[in-house]
C-alpha cells in the first residue's frame, strides 16, 4: 500500500476528489460496493461483513454534492444485469465532464466573465459564481487590467429565490402564498417555474399556473409564505424562457405610461427625468413608463410635493392615497 493508507480521518474534500478521480478513470463503471470498499475515504470505514448503511448514505450525499458542481455522474446497468438496481455501475463520462477543447476564452473575455461573476458576490448565486471563476482560472488565461474599476452587484434579498431556483432546475412544481396589493389575504398558488428574472431592479418568477394552464409573472417580494416544493415534476420548458419573461415584462412596462409634473431643479426632476424611456412632452412634465402601478406609486410618493401625477387617474389616486396615509400615520 502506498503512502495514503491508514489515515483515520480523511477530509471530505479528499474523499470527494478521490471519488471523482476513480469514476473518471473507469469506462465500465464501478459498483457501489467497488466504490465503498476501495475508494479513499470510504474504504477506511467499509466493513466486509457488517452493515454499511451509514457509508451508503454518505455516498448518496456525495453523489448529490458532486452533481451539484456540474460533474456528470451517471449510472449504467451492469452487463447481464439490466434493470437490477443492486448492480448499477457508476462512472463519469470524460466527454461530458471535460470542457470541450474548442471552448477557450481570450484575456478580454476572461476579464468580462470575472466582472459578470462579481455581480453575484452577495447572496444566492455567490457560491456558483465563485466556482465558475475557479474553473475559468483553471484555463490559465491572465486577465487585462480595466481602465476604470467596476464593482457591479445584483442583489437577491427575497427568501423565495433559493427554493425557486432549485425547483426551476429540478423542474418541480412549487406552492406558495401570494399577496396582491389591495387583497387582504394571500392566495395559494401552485405553479411550474419557468424562469427567474430581474427587471427594473426587482425579481420575478415566470411560471405556469396549474389551475389555468397560463403563464404568469409573480413578484418575489409578494410571496408571503415559505415556498414548498411538491413531488410532482413537469416537462422541460422550451429554451429561452428567461428572455421570454423579460420581453413580456418589457411589453407591460411599455404599455403602462404616466404623465407626471415635476418641479424644475428638484430630485424628482433629475432622477425621474433620467429614467429609461422618459420623454418630455412639455416644460416641467414627464412621460414615464412603469411595470407595476403600486410599486410606481410608492416610488412617486417618495418624491413628495416635487412630483404631481396627472394621469392615469388610477395612479393619481394611488399616489394621493399613499401621501394621505403617510401624513395621517405621522399626525
Amino acid at each position: 500500500m502506498a503512502n495514503v493508507g491508514g489515515a483515520s480521518r480523511i477530509p471530505a474534500e479528499e474523499r470527494l476528489f478521490s471519488l471523482v478521480l476513480a469514476l473518471l478513470a473507469t469506462d465500465a463503471g464501478l459498483t457501489k460496493t467497488d466504490i465503498l470498499s476501495t475508494v479513499q475515504g470510504y474504504r477506511q470505514k467499509f466493513s466486509r461483513s457488517g452493515d454499511n448503511a451509514n457509508l451508503e448514505r454518505q455516498f448518496e450525499r456525495d453523489k448529490d454534492d458532486i452533481r451539484d458542481l456540474g460533474v456528470p455522474l451517471e449510472t449504467i446497468d451492469s452487463p447481464g444485469h439490466a434493470g437490477d438496481n443492486h448492480n448499477l455501475r457508476y462512472r463519469i463520462p470524460r466527454g461530458a465532464y471535460e470542457l470541450p477543447t474548442d471552448i477557450r476564452f481570450s484575456p478580454e473575455e476572461t476579464t468580462l466573465l470575472n466582472l459578470a461573476a462579481m455581480v453575484w458576490r452577495e447572496g444566492s448565486l455567490s457560491a456558483e459564481s465563485r466556482r465558475a471563476i475557479l474553473k475559468l482560472r483553471s484555463l490559465g488565461v491572465t486577465t487585462t487590467e480595466p481602465v476604470l474599476g467596476y464593482a457591479p452587484r445584483v442583489r437577491v434579498r427575497e427568501a423565495a429565490f433559493d427554493p425557486l431556483g432549485t425547483a426551476l432546475e429540478r423542474r418541480q412544481v412549487v406552492r406558495f402564498g401570494y399577496l396582491k396589493p389591495g387583497e387582504s389575504e394571500a392566495r395559494v398558488r401552485t405553479v411550474e417555474p419557468r424562469a427567474l428574472v430581474q427587471h427594473q431592479g426587482r425579481w420575478h418568477l415566470f411560471a405556469t399556473d396549474q389551475s389555468t394552464s397560463t403563464t404568469k409573472t409573480f413578484l418575489l417580494r409578494r410571496i408571503v409564505t415559505q415556498v414548498s416544493t411538491l413531488a410532482t415534476t413537469f416537462a422541460p420548458s422550451a429554451p429561452g424562457q428567461a428572455d421570454l419573461a423579460l420581453s413580456e415584462l418589457e411589453t407591460v412596462w411599455n404599455s403602462n405610461s404616466a404623465v407626471v409634473q415635476v418641479d424644475e431643479g428638484t430630485d424628482a426632476a433629475t432622477r425621474l427625468g433620467k429614467r429609461r424611456g422618459a420623454t418630455v412632452p412639455g416644460a416641467g412634465t414627464l412621460n414615464l413608463h412603469y411595470s407595476d402601478l403600486n410599486i410606481f406609486a410608492d416610488e412617486l410618493a417618495g418624491y413628495g410635493p416635487e412630483a404631481l401625477v396627472i394621469s392615469p387617474p388610477e395612479l393619481r389616486d394611488a399616489v394621493r392615497a399613499r401621501l394621505e396615509r403617510t401624513a395621517a400615520d405621522h399626525g
Binding site: 456540474g70 460533474v71 471535460e98 470542457l99 459564481s129 465558475a132 474553473k135 483553471s138 484555463l139 432546475e169
Partner: peptide, 9 residues
C-alpha cells in the same frame, strides 16, 4: 482537462 461549468454556474 478543466471541468465544465454546472448549469447554475
Amino acid at each position: 482537462e478543466s471541468p465544465r461549468f454546472s448549469a447554475r454556474e
